[in-house]
Simulated assay, not measured.
Amino acid sequence: MLRGINLGKRQLKSAELKAVVEGMGFTEVKTILASGNVVFEAGDAAPEAIERDLHAALERATGLKSEVFVRNRADLEKLVEANPFPEEAKARPSYLLVTFHRAPPDRAAIGRLAESHDGPERMVVVGRELFTDFPEGQGRSTLVPAMQKARLAQGNTGRNWNTVRKLLAALGD
């Protein structure tokens, strides 16, 4: 998952992304949606190495600098199983956001933000991911700017529940 792709001037065509990943020697490459999601067979390659190498390959091939977050099928399966908002995921999956981080988010900082925020949103840290339920959507939420101000939005990328499920489905069995 690439951060901030196809937002404003940060444009990357799916075909370009696929070509870069294939050029790295990975197989079974499929892009998902047009927002910087790609699944592929990586063999025994370490996720951290893939993140580093894909970042460098994208910059060389396209000039685009984007943070890269890698999760394998087992990671996504555990994530889906651990979803703290299963009813919300069924009822309004596009309003449930999973934010992927390199390291576990600061639970204390998120707890302080949750306590001080008066909106209907709820946040739960599971491992190194943050689940945020936006019952009224993100567009008018006052939580998003509060998270940015609290510097909780550094070094991560978010996907709604629909996309998380599509990524897992694209990985197959």
Rank of each mutant, 00 (worst) to 15 (best):
A57T: 07
R102Y: 03
H101W: 09
M1T: 14
A61I: 07
E115F: 10
N72Q: 11
D173N: 15
K9L: 07
V21H: 03
E41L: 14
E59S: 05
F131K: 03
A46S: 13
R73T: 06
V29I: 10
A169E: 13
A108N: 12
G127Y: 00
I32N: 14
L2Y: 00
A150D: 01
S141C: 02
G139R: 15
A82S: 13
E22D: 04
A91I: 08
R92V: 00
D53I: 00
L96M: 10
A15T: 12
E87M: 11
R92K: 15
T142M: 09
E77N: 12
Q154E: 10
V80L: 12
A15F: 08
A103Y: 10
A19I: 00
G8Y: 13
T99F: 12
R128N: 07
V144L: 05
Q138F: 07
Y95W: 14
M24V: 04
M147I: 10
V125A: 12
K30N: 09
I5C: 00
R102E: 02
M147N: 09
R112C: 01
D44T: 15
L33I: 13
K78D: 04
V144M: 07
V39E: 11
R73A: 09
S116I: 11
A91C: 08
K13C: 05
R128H: 06
A56D: 05
P120M: 11
E87W: 10
P93Q: 13
Q148N: 13
P104S: 10
E88W: 14
S116F: 07
K13Q: 08
R92A: 09
G139C: 11
R159K: 08
K149M: 02
P84Q: 02
E41V: 13
Q11R: 15
V98E: 02
N72H: 14
V38T: 07
A91Q: 14
L76Q: 12
L76I: 06
L64C: 04
E59C: 03
K18M: 06
G139Q: 14
K18E: 01
L58R: 01
K13W: 05
V80W: 08
F85L: 04
G139F: 07
T62A: 02
L2K: 01
L130Q: 04
A91K: 15
A150M: 03
N160F: 13
A169W: 12
G158E: 02
R112Q: 04
Q11N: 12
G139W: 04
G139N: 13
R102V: 02
G23W: 09
I110F: 06
I5F: 00
G43P: 01
D118H: 15
S14N: 15
R140Q: 07
G23N: 08
L58V: 03
S14I: 05
S35G: 13
E87G: 06
I5T: 00
G25K: 14
G8Q: 13
D106S: 13
G172T: 03
E121R: 15
L33D: 11
E67D: 15
P120N: 12
K13R: 14
Y95D: 09
V164W: 00
L64N: 05
H101N: 12
L17H: 02
P145R: 05
S66R: 10
R151F: 06
A74T: 08
T99Q: 14
S14M: 13
L113H: 14
F100G: 03
A46E: 11
L54A: 01
G137R: 11
G111S: 10
G4V: 04
E41P: 08
Q148P: 05
L143G: 03
K65H: 06
R151S: 04
V98S: 09
G158K: 08
S35D: 06
G139S: 14
F26V: 08
G25A: 01
